[in-house]
Structures are given as structure tokens and as C-alpha cells.
Design a binder for these strands. Structure first.
Lengths: 110, 110
DNA sequence: ATAGTTAATCGCAAATATACGATAAATATT
DNA sequence: AATATTTATCGTATATTTGCGATTAACTAT
């Protein structure tokens, strides 16, 4: 974290893929996404009932996913209904597909 | 990080996918993988010449990728030749494919 | 107005990640 | 044996992440 090197210019795609990856980089967040997918949508409280973590911790993980754009929180007082953000989910799908595409791994050795 | 809750039992798949995601969660590491893919393989020094980061930092990122299983380092004294680990790369590809599969996102709402 | 419910946010602690320069290890060359 | 090359590792500093309990905010229902 020295000097001016900490912000290198990456392409928009690289930046986004790293962001998505980071958000997916915790088991609890994968479970939350799976749960959201299975249940269509859910409230924070549903997850609190299911996961062995404090409410504040779960709220934090939801924020993480929301900030990465993978989920949306729709206010439904006094609850908040979380759903997967389809648009960005598709974007993530596309980015990961590119990453693992044939031409990305078109090696001549190894 | 309290009590005994910090180690929850996740499935092997969840654990692995989170691990891969985390490794992919830094732009520099994505660039390294892309470079490895383009150049077939490369030495640490090649990356040091290309990336605006200290040699030790790059070495650390390589270790991160290696520990996640995404790359292999083959000793070729005094250099070390890094290549993508095809087996695990395929495994990652499959796991991400499952994550983004149709039936994962089979919603009834949103 | 008061009380209840739900979920975000704050404040804190501990762990992990990111970056660097310096040093060490391993091997090839002289 | 001595030197040069290459790269990992060590030590350190700072930033970020992860977790908790307590509090606050927003809205409902009484």
C-alpha cells in the first residue's frame, strides 16, 4: 500500500470480474445466494433463522452482495426483501464464461 | 471472530468455489492468469517486467493462486515456470457453470 | 403516543490481505 | 570457491474483512 501504485488502471471488465469474484469469495455469501435462488427471494430474518451467525453479520454480508450488485433489497416495511439482481447476475455469468472460454485457455504447453 | 461459530461446515463444493472465487477476486491475479494463458506459461520475472508491482508482491499473488490450486510452479532453476493447473481450472469452470446454471436461478419472482 | 418488529449501522476486536524493501535459498557460471 | 541470477520468504506497515453486541432508524400495530 505504498506510493501511487495502489491504483493501477484495469479494464472495466477486469475490475467488474474481480468485484464479482470477491463477493462470491465467502462460503456464507454463496449459501445466501443459493438460498435466495431457491426461495425466490427472502428477508434478512429468514437467513438469520437459518444461518448460525449474528443478525448484524448477515446484514453485513448482504450489504457486500448488494454493493457488488449481485442482489437488490426492496423495502417492504418493516422488512426488506432481497432478490438476486438478474441483470448483474447475467453479467457475472457472461464474464465468468469469458474467463473460462476456450480461447482464454488456448495453451501451447503444459 | 467469536466463540465457536467461525468454522461452519460447508459442503466441499461450496468451500472450493469460495476458494476459487477469492483467488480470482483481485484484478492483478486476473491479469496474471490472462498473461499465463496468453503466453502459455511464464516466469515470475516476466510478470515483474510487465506489472507495476514489486517482485515480492507478485510472488505473493502467485502463491495465492498456487495455494488455491489454479496454477502450478515448475522448478526450472534458477527460474520457476508458472502454468495454469488445467485440472483445477476445469474444476473451477464446472463449479462456476453450476452456480450460473438455469436451475440455480429458477425464480418465481423478481 | 407507545410499544413492537425488523434490519441497518456503529463501535470494537481480531484476523487476513496487500504492499514494500531486505534477506535468504537455490542453482548456474566463472 | 566466488559470483550472478532468480525467486521465495521474512519483517513490517497499513487496509480490509469478518465477526460480535448494542444502538438506531423506520415503519406497524395497539
Amino acid at each position: 500500500m505504498n506510493k501511487t501504485l495502489q491504483h493501477i488502471d484495469y479494464t472495466e471488465e477486469t475490475e467488474k470480474l474481480a468485484r464479482f469474484s470477491k463477493a462470491l469469495g465467502h462460503p456464507i455469501r454463496l449459501i445466501i445466494l443459493k438460498y435466495l435462488s431457491d426461495q425466490s427471494c427472502c428477508y434478512t430474518g429468514d437467513l438469520v433463522g437459518v444461518l448460525p451467525l449474528a443478525q448484524s453479520t448477515i446484514s453485513q454480508h448482504l450489504k457486500e452482495l448488494k454493493d457488488a450488485g449481485l442482489i437488490d433489497g426492496e423495502v417492504n416495511p418493516p422488512k426488506i426483501r432481497y432478490c438476486i439482481n438478474q441483470e448483474n447476475w447475467e453479467k457475472a455469468k457472461a464474464l465468468f464464461a469469458t474467463l473460462f472460454q476456450e480461447d482464454f485457455k488456448n495453451f501451447s504447453c503444459c
